[in-house]
């Protein structure tokens, strides 16, 4: 067995600019893609409930295609396929004065991850909306509220209780799925490690090192998620949100299975 502790420690805990850059890139991709996913998912879920058959069809097609094809293929297709299709490159190495970090590959990967995520979020949001008792919408309507007001002020706020826990799991997933961006040359954590062992021929140490960072990110997110869910459960006389931190982290003793996370 060959393990070089010095190499591991040096890669993992020496605060080089490239390491910080990779961490920032990873977090940026995850956050932007997740936000995009939530917005697209909301639009798709609402369109899917529309009386308008065209909107409904577009929503169904979107979810069907993006859940039914690999996200890795979607990233590559967008980054390499789109320029050849269009004849122009929408993903150049740099965009004018923007920092180098936010280049074409970053944009393509983030976009693909976000659009893919939207398809999953659409199903989660749809389930959340369906979980709200139909009497709530009827009461709102009977008070003269328009469908839009009924949705935004009465139904969606209540659906949040059902949406937030799987949304948290989705973001946990997203933090790790960012590693796929390495295939189009985004220097996030995985590509950083690959670049390292390309020179040292010691792959284990840097790969173990980035696992430390992924674990740190998902652990901190788990803490934040617990806070959010606890707050969400307040005043509603239910105890679904009082799972301990450790059971959330390890899955031991969970009452509800993590939903929406399986890929």
């Amino acid at each position: 067995m060959q393990f070089d502790p010095k190499e591991f420690l040096d890669f993992t805990f020496t605060w080089r600019g490239v390491l910080i850059g990779a961490i920032v890139t990873t977090l940026l991709i995850a956050v932007i893609a997740q936000v995009l996913g939530v917005l697209l998912g909301l639009l798709a879920a609402l369109a899917g409930r529309s009386r308008n058959l065209v909107l409904k069809g577009i929503s169904g097609l979107y979810v069907w295609v993006f859940r039914g094809t690999p996200v890795l293929v979607q990233i590559v297709l967008l980054y390499y396929g789109l320029p050849s299709l269009l004849g122009i490159d929408p993903f150049p190495q740099r965009y004018g004065n923007l920092p180098e970090l936010i280049g074409g590959a970053f944009l393509a990967a983030t976009l693909a991850l976000g659009v893919n995520e939207g398809a999953y979020m659409s199903e989660i949001i749809r389930a959340g909306i369906l979980s709200v008792d139909s009497g709530q919408a009827e009461a709102a309507k009977s008070l003269g509220m328009t469908p839009r007001k009924t949705m935004s002020r009465i139904v969606l706020p209540q659906a949040m209780r059902v949406i937030i826990p799987p949304l948290g799991n989705e973001f946990n997933n997203m933090l790790k799925t960012t590693s796929l961006a390495s295939v189009v040359g985004v220097t996030e954590l995985l590509l950083l490690a690959e670049n390292r062992y390309g020179g040292t021929f010691k792959p284990f140490e840097p790969l173990l090192g980035i696992c430390v960072y992924y674990l740190a990110m998902t652990t901190i997110w788990g803490l934040i998620q617990g806070r959010i869910e606890k707050r969400l459960g307040a005043g509603l006389n239910r105890n679904e949100a009082d799972e301990g931190f450790w059971s959330r982290l390890t899955g031991v003793g969970r009452r509800m299975g993590p939903s929406g996370g399986a890929r």
């Binding site: 009827e138 009461a139 209540q158």
Partner: peptide
Amino acid sequence: FQRFNLFPH
């Protein structure tokens, strides 16, 4: 309504 349908939030 029979089941009140107050907004619980």
